[in-house]
Simulated scan of single mutants.
Amino acid sequence: MAKRLFDGVTSVFQTDRAIVLRDGMVTELRAATAGDRRNDQAVHVAVAAPGMIDMQINGAGDAQFNFDPTPATLARIAAGAREGGTAHILPTFITAEGQSYLQALAAVRQAMDDRMPGIAGIHLEGPFLSPARPGIHDPSSIRPLAEDDVIALEREARDFPGPILLTLAPECQEPAQLNRLAAAGIILFAGHSEARPEHLEQMRGATHLWNAMPGLNSRTPGIVSEVLAGDRLFAGLIADGHHVGPHALRISLRAAADRLCLVTDAMLTLAGASQGFDLHGRHITLSDGRLTGEDGTLAGAHIAMDQSVSNVVAIAGIDPLVALRTATVNPARALGREKSLGRIAPGLPASVSLFDRSLNSVGVAIEGQLYLRD
C-alpha cells in the first residue's frame, strides 16, 4: 500500500492506493481500505512508482561487466542496482578489443532466456566512438564500424530477447551502415561524439548528455542543442553532481524533461566494498563520490538511481513526480517498451519501485518477486 502513487499514466500523485500483485502481474489498483492498513502481510510505503530503469550501468556489487561478461556478473550487477531501487537495467559493455561485445551479447541473451530478474536488454557503449572524444575508453580499441560488425549486429538483433542500445559516434560511420542497424531494430544513441545535426538522423538519443561531446555553442549546433532545442531525441543524464553541473542540470530538465532519462553510469564500486580498480591499465580511484583516473578524467559514476532522483529534485528544483518520470516513463519510451514498462496498471507485469518519503529506496518488486532493503 502506498501513501502516494505515481502510476506512470496520470500526471499527479494518487493518494492511499493499494497495488495488488499476483503471479508476477498487477491484478488490481484501487483505493486502500481499512483492511489493507491492518493487513500485516501488506507492504506499506510512502511512495510507489513504476520500476526504475537504468539504461547505462557498467557494474555494481564489486562486479564489472567488461571484466567478466557472464550471467553470474549480471546477477551481481542487477542485485547491486536493486539496492538503489532500480528494477530493470541495461548492463553496459564499453569499448573493448575487436568484437568482444559479442560475448557480452551472449551473456545477456543467456540471462534473459533464464529469466534473470532485472535484465531488460543490453547497452553497447563503443567501440565505434570518436577518437577525439574517448573519455575513459581505451583509445587503442576505438574504431569505426566494419562490415563484419554490421552483419554480426544485424544477426544478433533478429531474435534478441530485449532492446540493444548502441552508443556510437555517427559522424565516424558510413550512413548506409547506420541505416541498416536502425532498420534491424538497434537503438542508436550518439555519444563520445562531435556529431552535427546532419549526422543525427538515425539516432534515437544521446548518451550521458554534456559529457564526451561539445557543449552548447551560440553558432555551432551539436548534440546538446539538438536534444534541448529539438523535440525528438532522448538523452541519458548522469545526476551525480560531478558529470553535469547544477546550471546545466536545470537547463536540461527545464528544456527537455519529457525526453531525459536518468542513468547512473555506475561502476563496480556501487553497492560494493571496492574503493578502486584498474581499467585499461589506468588506476581508477573512488574519492568523495567521484571515480577518476590519475589525470582526473571521470571514469563512470558512483551513484544509485534513488539518489539520482533525489539529486534532480534538490539540485535542479524539479517536482518529484517529474523526477520520477525521468527514471521510469522516459526510459521505457526511449527503449520502445512503454507498453510493458514505466507504468503500473492491471494486466501489466509487476514492476514497482518503493520509496520512503525522502525518495530513498526501500525495495523493488519485479515479476512477482519482492526485494526489500534491510
Results as ranks from 00 to 15, higher is better:
289 G>E: 13
227 V>W: 04
253 L>Y: 02
269 T>N: 12
262 L>I: 05
306 D>A: 11
235 A>R: 04
231 D>P: 02
298 L>Q: 01
268 L>H: 05
227 V>H: 02
294 E>L: 07
304 A>P: 03
223 I>D: 04
247 H>W: 06
301 A>K: 03
247 H>R: 12
274 S>N: 10
226 E>L: 08
230 G>M: 13
229 A>E: 12
230 G>Q: 11
301 A>N: 03
275 Q>K: 15
242 H>T: 10
234 F>Q: 03
297 T>M: 13
225 S>P: 01
287 S>I: 11
259 R>L: 02
297 T>D: 12
251 I>Y: 02
227 V>K: 01
295 D>Q: 12
252 S>Q: 02
299 A>K: 05
255 A>L: 07
251 I>D: 01
249 L>D: 01
226 E>G: 08
282 R>I: 02
267 M>K: 06
294 E>F: 09
265 D>H: 02
231 D>W: 06
253 L>W: 04
305 M>E: 04
279 L>H: 08
287 S>Y: 13
280 H>P: 08
239 A>G: 05
232 R>T: 14
270 L>A: 06
233 L>N: 02
227 V>L: 09
269 T>A: 15
299 A>M: 10
240 D>K: 01
256 A>G: 10
224 V>T: 07
285 T>V: 12
251 I>A: 07
251 I>T: 13
301 A>M: 09
266 A>D: 05
245 G>L: 03
259 R>Y: 08
297 T>C: 13
245 G>T: 14
232 R>D: 15
227 V>C: 09
230 G>N: 11
307 Q>H: 14
